[in-house]
Design a protein around this nucleic acid. Structure first.
Lengths: 129, 129
DNA sequence: CGGAATCCGCAAAGATACTG
DNA sequence: CAGTATCTTTGCGGATTCCG
């Protein structure tokens, strides 16, 4: 990665931090990863995504897709049929994100029991409040 | 909401998704990764963290540390000196997160120029609004 | 020094209704 | 079908104050 903030803080170090954090927040976004994973095997239509991602609102799906399109992670293709259909597909860049994200997702899966146990234990201490 | 009774096939799948997303959101958290990275080389005191992580408020540092402690990613140690000093250190679990996170951070670093170019291009289209 | 408690603004997220 | 527009609500996060 980068050397942690140990010695001198250069301006560029901070810039990198901010920019990196901004990109990381995309992964922590409530819906982005869901969308990306759902596009992992090929193009998917708007309504399919909405059905696949349980709990997402129309609005949030639109916004999430718009952000991912803006960042160049997916493409939006309109088919001028009646009624119109629009499908979304990962770009090459988007597909390269698939792997790092799944590494992290696997970490989450693997350590989930441990984390939940920790939470329960923490809840039993006075500090939980 | 949860699945409104479409059979039992979705129950566990949804649970996994929600739980995984919850853990992933920790990575997307504005400050968590910064804290984790700063603890990568050993215990650090509260005030050192506050100075090292530029822009973080006392409150948010406290909250972030509390959450990470709750999840078992770091430990909090109080030294009963006067004035008191408290230091934080990654747990074993916390250290295992260091690697997947840096994979993702490296992805972010590497593709940042590409993403920023995409954003600029997007801003020049009408869709940018 | 390392917090906890309180207040508050603002932006993000949800619900609803309407449209090309 | 695939959105947009609008309104309301939630809750993150900053600033400030107080305490052991």
């Amino acid at each position: 990665m980068k050397s942690p903030g140990y010695g001198k803080m250069t301006g560029r170090y901070d810039d990198d931090c901010v920019a990196t954090r901004e990109i990381l927040s995309l992964v922590g976004d409530k819906w982005s990863v869901m969308v990306i994973v759902n596009l992992g095997e090929g193009p998917v239509r708007f309504s399919e995504l909405k059905r696949a991602i349980e709990g997402i609102s129309q609005r949030m799906l639109t916004l999430t897709l718009r952000n991912l399109e803006r960042d160049g992670l997916l493409t939006r293709t309109v088919h001028p049929t009646t009624p119109p259909s629009v499908d979304y597909a990962l770009t090459k860049l988007g597909r390269t994100l698939l792997e790092p994200v799944s590494v992290l997702a696997m970490w989450a899966q693997r350590h989930r029991p441990e984390i939940e146990r920790s939470r329960e234990a923490f809840a039993r201490t006075a500090r939980a409040k």
